[in-house]
Write a protein that binds this DNA or RNA. Structure first.
Length: 618
RNA sequence: GGCCCCGUAGCUCAGCGGAUAGAGCAUUUGCCUUCUAAGCAAAUGGCCCCUGGUUCGAGUCCAGGCGGGGUCACCA
């Protein structure tokens, strides 16, 4: 039982005893006392005036006296207005610290026997990963780490869109213009290599389109179809898709390639496999650099035909209905979601059909109690529909489905647009933040005497910490502005600031040397009269498991990020104000070393949940 | 237009019904002969988008507006 639970139940009992009233639990829930007042936890007594018929201050006095008398962990109290501030005894805190100081697993909640599957990243294979994927990956990864810490068994999966017209464009461009070049022969990272051909296709297509616009055919179409209020330029912009599908030679070739692929044409399949493999190799390198991995990959080429049997079942069960043309629909109007096609009139699947099938297949593969889809908020409607249909189909896992939606990442200059070349590439971003860390490190010179590989390892950790923390600290649902300049900041509310707290501790612990022998920490138990900076730190540490739990429940890594920052901030304050190795007494020294060890532990675990590694020096 | 998300300091963000709304960046000023100054302390900076309502108490909950974004394909 936690101290807050203890205070809560004692408060309920006290109110019952003093005023004969049974209050709801939430009215007895203690909050953390604000820093400007003395105390650790606070009970608000305003709600009790109704039945106690006394002033809030009076109630607080009576309740405070009662609690301190009956709860041994409470030392004293004070009253400000109607606020009852409770002071937890030093012994409680020092006991708690002794329990966790050497416990590497502090913050790991007991196994709950439940499984959660988290799907994230899920890229297309026609171009490299970009900043949007980075936010997705960081969210998905930290979410899975947090769920594990909260006691779940976690499976990390992604669904790779390896088929369709987009990859065919890359394939066609390579075939026509590639001259058998390879990533090796050109020295290009292999996913970028494939992406370059996608871009090349778009260029060639634009050239073709431009030429067509000036041709007699183009001018004739313009004359026939342009609307009165449309400029020539605007018309051709709007007409692009139609041109691609009905007039373009390149478009025709790309679509033919897709048909060949669907017909399992051996040479097309071979080319497809070869180019996709290049992309996968490139992706793996990026995943590795970001420090993430997956347990299982699903490929749309293997799942895109799934879901048809579900449609049949749904029809039989009356969840779906068939129109005269043979298309199958779900009527979700009573859930405020409109009608939705689940199968085309020609009997082929649509996007959501595939998702229905994939959901079922994965349930059979893994049997998850919860499935979390990390997908940007532009697909909110899609997931509402998907979940609603699965619910109506009576799927056993329907109640555990969750869409972890997140806002798009904008640049200070506005939205990222591939057309305008403003997309921030993931690999570039990673090398930039590390380069920035290298520059800053040169000026400091702290790690100059280490070997080159050791230095590079540290710089990588610092750079990635800056990048990852900058992204993960923002509430997922918020659209965020990503300023590359700020993402490499190493000071203030940043990853490196937190790493620095850890590094300072490690430095002190190294200097303390043999005094870290297990026995010597017994001295810490003799320490009393905790300083405010020490109390603040311990109280923060105490909050860690609860923070892990709420972050897991809310699927919100930013709560862990903010917690780590607060803890580091409190540590820096403590470190500046109080001497550790030259503490006033041996007891104080032992206690502070123990406190340092515990803080280091929690910082390492907490940042680990965000996928951020800690260096030993910086 | 229907539905969903967002609106807090110049900028980027916390705040999850309680006290005088907090951090970081930016600007200004102190603090390294002592455990790593990637730090600490201080100053400056706010019609918490607006209007009503619920409540002892609202940035927080509810309703209606306003502003920004997303989405409403037999695309994925």
């Amino acid at each position: 039982m936690t101290i807050t639970d203890l205070i809560q139940s004692a408060t309920i009992a006290a109110i019952q005893e003093l005023y004969g009233e049974t209050i709801p639990a939430e009215q007895a829930a203690p909050t953390v006392t604000r820093k400007e007042f003395e105390g650790d936890y606070t009970i608000v007594t305003f709600p009790f005036t109704r039945f106690a018929k006394k002033k809030p201050g009076e109630i607080a006095e009576e309740l405070g006296a009662h609690l301190v008398k009956n709860v041994p962990q409470l030392d004293r109290f004070n009253v400000v207005q109607g606020f009852l501030n409770l002071v937890v005894s030093d012994v409680f805190w020092t006991d708690f610290l002794a329990q966790i100081a050497d416990n590497q697993d502090f913050g790991q909640l007991p196994k709950n026997g439940k499984k959660v599957m988290i799907e994230f990243c899920s890229p297309n294979t026609n171009k490299p990963l970009h900043l949007g994927h980075v936010r997705n990956i960081l969210l998905g990864w930290s979410c899975s780490q947090i769920c594990e810490a909260a006691g779940y068994e976690v499976k990390k999966v992604q669904v790779i869109n390896d088929r369709g017209i987009a990859i065919c464009k890359s394939m066609l461009a390579w075939q026509k213009f590639g001259n058998s070049a390879t990533p090796e022969s050109t020295g290009t990272k292999s996913d970028h290599f494939v992406g370059d051909y996608y871009v090349l296709f778009e260029q060639k297509f634009q050239e073709e389109y431009k030429a067509w616009q000036a041709s007699a055919d183009g001018q004739q179409i313009l004359g026939e179809k342009r609307k009165a209020d449309q400029s020539d330029e605007q018309f051709f912009k709007d007409f692009k898709n139609t041109y691609f599908n009905e007039y373009s030679l390149l478009g025709k070739e790309a679509r033919e390639m897709l048909l060949l692929w669907e017909a399992h044409d051996p040479s097309t399949i071979a080319l497809w496999k070869r180019m996709n493999q290049w992309v996968y190799d490139g992706f793996e390198e990026t995943f590795h650099n970001l420090g993430v991995s997956f347990d299982k990959y699903y490929y749309e080429s293997e799942t895109y035909l799934l879901g048809k049997d579900i449609v049949e079942q749904g029809l039989a069960a009356g969840v779906f209905y068939k129109k005269e043309d043979g298309s199958v629909w779900a009527d979700l109007t009573d859930a405020k979601l409109d009608h939705k096609v689940v199968m085309r009139s020609d009997g082929t699947s649509v996007y959501i059909t595939q998702d229905l099938g994939t959901a079922q297949m994965r349930y059979h593969d893994f049997g998850a109690d919860k499935v979390v889809y990390v997908v940007a908020d532009e697909q909110n409607y899609h997931f509402q529909v998907l979940f609603e249909i699965l619910k109506r189909l009576g799927e056993p896992y329907a109640a555990g489905l969750h869409h972890l939606n997140y806002g798009m990442v904008d640049l200070p200059t506005g939205k990222m647009k591939s057309r305008e070349g403003t997309v921030v590439d993931a690999d570039d971003l990673i090398s930039e933040v590390i380069a920035e860390a290298r520059e800053a490190s040169k000026e400091r010179g702290e790690i100059a005497e280490l070997t080159k590989p050791e230095q590079e390892d540290i710089l990588r950790k610092i750079g990635l910490a800056a990048l990852k923390f900058h992204i993960i600290k923002v509430t997922p649902q918020k659209r965020m502005v990503f300023d590359p300049k700020e993402s490499v900041d190493l000071q203030g509310q940043t990853g490196p600031h937190i790493q620095y707290a850890y590094v300072r501790i490690k430095s002190v612990l190294r200097k303390a040397g043999e005094q870290l022998a297990v026995g010597s920490w017994q001295l810490a138990a003799g320490y009393s009269n905790l300083q405010p900076q020490e109390r603040e730190l311990i109280a923060q540490l105490y909050r860690f498991p609860a923070t892990v739990e709420t972050a897991a429940n809310n699927y919100d890594p930013s709560e862990i990020a903010n917690y780590c920052y607060d803890l580091a901030k409190a540590f820096h304050r403590f470190f500046t104000d109080l001497s550790i190795l030259k503490a006033e007494t041996e007891e104080a020294k032992a206690f502070r070393l123990q406190l340092c060890a515990a803080v280091a532990n929690v910082l390492k675990t907490g940042m680990g949940l965000l996928g951020i590694e800690m260096p030993e020096r910086m």
